[in-house]
């Protein structure tokens, strides 16, 4: 089998912050109500984290679980781990009403890093970054497309749909152009 190819194949841009499109990342969209019995077990089995609180993401190494809506979670893991995780979810949820779908290929993932990484995003998202709570996963828009964003060690991770990866790269590069810092 050929290697999976991300939308932009590891694109990079160096401005006043660094923009890096990450290779394919495993993602599962899990829909279930928070009071469903098997949920905690399913998330634990799939990515090893507890159920995230509303609007939060719990990161554990390469894996993470994020709260997307009152009945939707995003599970993040290595690309080739999704089949096993799907099986573990099915096992844990049993007959509880839920929907799990692999969406690894439907997404593009960008890391925007550096001390001024937030300024890149402040140009694109109607989000008060100063008020972003620790561990908060914010769903919003970046200019004209939907995006999810959360803080990582050295900056932020931005996720959008795969088809607009080129647009997102263009936005982030334009906003990170050297000399265009906001402060």
């Amino acid at each position: 089998m050929s290697d999976p190819v991300s939308a932009l194949g590891d694109a990079n841009f160096e401005g006043f912050a660094a923009v890096h499109e990450r290779g394919p990342l495993g993602m599962i969209s899990l829909r279930a109500k928070s009071d469903v019995k098997g949920l905690a077990k399913a998330i634990k089995a799939a990515v090893g984290t507890p159920v995230p609180a509303p609007r939060r993401i719990v990161v554990k190494g390469e894996k993470a679980a994020g709260w997307m809506s009152p009945d939707e979670y995003i599970l993040i893991l290595p690309y080739d781990g999704t089949a096993a995780a799907m099986a573990a979810i099915a096992d844990a949820m049993g007959s509880d009403h839920h929907l799990a779908a692999v969406v690894s290929d439907a997404r593009a993932v960008f890391d925007v890093t550096g001390p001024k990484a937030d300024q890149v995003l402040r140009k694109l998202m109607p989000v008060d970054f100063a008020a972003l709570a620790p561990g908060e996963l914010r769903r919003t828009r970046a200019a004209q497309v939907a995006a999810a964003v959360w803080a990582v060690d050295t900056g932020f991770r931005v996720v959008c749909f795969r088809s607009v990866a080129g647009y997102m790269m263009g936005l982030l590069s334009h906003s990170a152009k050297p000399g265009t810092e906001l402060a």
Partner: peptide, 15 residues
């Protein structure tokens, strides 16, 4: 603003 040229609007591309 930034909406010019290549990023005038989000062009969607298939794989």
């Amino acid at each position: 603003g930034e909406s010019r040229g290549e990023i005038f609007q989000p062009l969607r591309r298939t794989p």
